[in-house]
Amino acid sequence: MPKQNEFVISKYQNEKDFQKNYAKLGKKITDVVKHKLGGVTANDPEYWGLREMLTPEMVDMLNKMKVRRHYTLDDLIKLHKGVDPKHIEEVYEQMSVIGIIEYDYGDNYTHNLKDDHPIPNAPKIKRYKLSFFVPGSAELFNSSVDRIEKNPAVTSFFERMTFIPLAGITQMVAPGGMGIGMHVIPVEKAIDAQQESISLEKISYWLDKYEGHIAAGICSCRASRAVLGDGCTDDVNDWCVQLGDMADYTVETNRAHYITKERALEIFELAEKNGYVHQITNIDG
């Protein structure tokens, strides 16, 4: 595994005033087996990355949650008994903007491959979720240029959390990724030569399903690596496309802007011309 990039070092890395509640949260979220079993130290990114971004109050609240479980505001009020409901909502909205919390408005889409679309007049109940680091909060910490400029150490945190979980495992992963982390889907032109294709594997399927809920934002990978002195010549803007609930979340938290289906196809076609690979995360579908 590559050594940690030293362009940006967190002021909290190896701090002497060790905060156990941050280590507890890092252990809860991480998928690094060694840290899951043995705990998190002040030298681990799960610790100093959270120290950079969260207040002690936020950490204490998050330590009461389960990872990747949805909580409505009513659920959170029950979870944090004795705390003013308005304050609870304010803190969770702040954490949503930071990126440690994601949210959606319920499962408001049909699941019919032949006619998949939003459910008309479906109730919109906001549900908060504590997600993984990658894919998840480590990326969201880096999801806008102003966030990175305000706290450059998040770039080092993201870089570490993309390497450490797969250390010692990568060499055993077969070509194609075996479904770990990301899932490759082809654009229309790439599948013309195939005899059969499943609609789920076509980008147009997703664009049709989520039309009106499509957004584009910066490439957090490109933006963060540039700060670490390892960037590329590409413009960072509008390479990452979000769909459905994630599009709404990224727009509402000032990470992205809505785009049309046609604009999304332009982005994908340009990406294919550049030789890029289209990927989606495996954890939500």
Rank of each mutant, 00 (worst) to 15 (best):
S156L: 08
A153G: 07
N121E: 15
S137F: 13
I164Q: 08
K81V: 12
G136M: 09
I185H: 02
Y109D: 02
Y92T: 00
K66Q: 14
Y105L: 09
N108A: 08
G136D: 05
V154K: 07
D74E: 15
Y103R: 04
K129Y: 00
P165G: 10
K78R: 14
F158W: 13
Y103C: 02
N112A: 02
D74G: 00
I180A: 14
A153M: 11
H87C: 01
P152M: 13
D75M: 07
P118E: 02
A153P: 02
R147G: 02
S143N: 09
K124T: 10
S96L: 07
N108E: 10
V67W: 04
I164V: 14
R69E: 12
D115N: 15
L79K: 14
Y128C: 04
H87S: 11
T170G: 03
K124F: 05
I119C: 05
I101F: 09
D75P: 11
S137C: 12
P135M: 12
F132E: 11
K78C: 00
V173D: 07
I77H: 04
V83Q: 14
V184S: 09
I88N: 07
I88V: 15
I101T: 06
I164C: 03
V173C: 07
F132I: 02
S96R: 05
F158K: 14
F132T: 06
T162V: 12
L140H: 11
M182I: 13
H70V: 04
S96T: 08
G99F: 07
V91P: 03
E149Y: 01
P85Y: 09
E90P: 01
G177P: 03
D84I: 12
D84V: 11
F132L: 13
E102V: 05
Y105H: 08
D115P: 04
G106D: 09
R69L: 07
F133N: 01
V91W: 00
E149G: 00
R68F: 03
E159G: 01
E139Y: 08
K126Y: 07
D104W: 11
I164F: 03
E102F: 05
I164T: 06
Y109V: 06
N151L: 15
H111T: 09
K114E: 10
R68V: 03
N142M: 02
M172L: 10
F132R: 13
G136K: 08
P152G: 09
I88G: 05
P120Y: 05
N142F: 00
M95E: 06
K86Y: 03
V91G: 01
V154E: 04
S137M: 09
S137Q: 05
K124L: 12
H70W: 11
Q171N: 14
G106Q: 08
M161V: 02
R127D: 00
